[in-house]
């Protein structure tokens, strides 16, 4: 009964996020074309200088899936700031829903956006000759899901604390670019200088990329489940902080 109200509240917020997502076609299109653009330009250029022991474009495809998740998930937090600005957040915060419920509803909305974008990219991947099978597709989706949960939460945490879109843009890029560049999405991490290598060990996206590469291409530093375990650990921490941030968020 109480649970029904909570689920209905989560559905309410998801409903809204999804409607907004549907209406903002330009965002969907750009979020799919950006990785594709990188894939061909960057993949073509780097492929000629980097030796990854195979087709470089295949090597970076899992990285591009992760990239889509990283950017779209974190960006999603900007909606919290936007909601503050258009006063829509008042309407949500004055409802009987708890802040924790609101957090989960928003997170679910962001998660849907991110995963849909990644799924479209996976379909494109089939045409690019990425060796998807009935086994590695679910493993890929599970890993993308796990990565998105934590990053959507991170975006929401930043959104909860920021008051202006500019502030959000600044702080989130400070988080997004290290996460992305240290994830190994674009290049193998083996030959990095030691200090950078240490940093890659605390980058949850690096484990996700390794896990994706293992699932899709069969080459990884760590076993899939170990990678997944680290990412899920990151999720739990991010969700906890996210729920806390929403509970202390001021208008």
């Amino acid at each position: 009964m109480k649970l029904r109200k909570i689920l209905k509240g989560i559905y309410a917020l998801w409903y809204r996020e999804f409607k907004v997502f549907q209406r903002e076609r330009s965002r969907i299109i750009s979020s799919i074309f950006m990785p594709l653009f990188w894939y061909f330009i960057f993949g073509g250029a780097m492929g000629s200088v980097v030796n990854v022991g195979g087709d470089y474009r295949h090597f970076i495809f899992p990285g591009f899936l992760a990239m889509t998740i990283i950017f779209s998930s974190m960006f999603n937090g900007a909606y919290v700031v936007w909601d503050k600005k258009i006063d829509f957040l008042k309407e949500v915060l004055i409802s009987p829903l708890s802040r924790t419920t609101i957090f989960f509803g928003k997170a679910l909305g962001g998660l849907t956006d991110s995963l849909l974008q990644a799924l479209i990219l996976m379909i494109i991947g089939i045409f690019l000759g990425i060796p998807f099978t009935l086994v590695n597709v679910p493993l890929t989706i599970i890993m993308l899901f796990a990565l998105a949960v934590g990053l959507v939460s991170m975006g929401l945490i930043i959104g909860a604390f920021m008051e202006s879109p500019e502030g959000f843009g600044l702080v989130s890029s400070f988080a997004v670019y290290p996460l992305f560049l240290l994830s190994g999405a674009l290049y193998p991490l083996d030959n990095l200088p030691t200090w950078m290598k240490i940093l890659t060990h605390v980058d949850p996206a690096a484990y996700a990329v390794d896990g994706l590469r293992g699932a899709i291409l069969g080459t990884s530093a760590m076993p899939y489940l170990a990678n997944l375990g680290v990412v899920v650990g990151f999720d739990i921490v991010a969700i906890t902080i996210g729920a806390w941030a929403f509970n202390r968020m001021k208008l």
Partner: peptide, 25 residues
């Protein structure tokens, strides 16, 4: 009913009200 507009203008009137109805069970 807030003094300042507090609806989402990307949504329709119906969608704004539906969201409200869901939040209020």
């Amino acid at each position: 009913v807030f003094q300042d507009p507090s609806s989402d203008d990307v949504l329709s009137g119906y969608e704004n009200l539906k969201l409200h109805a869901l939040m209020y069970d």
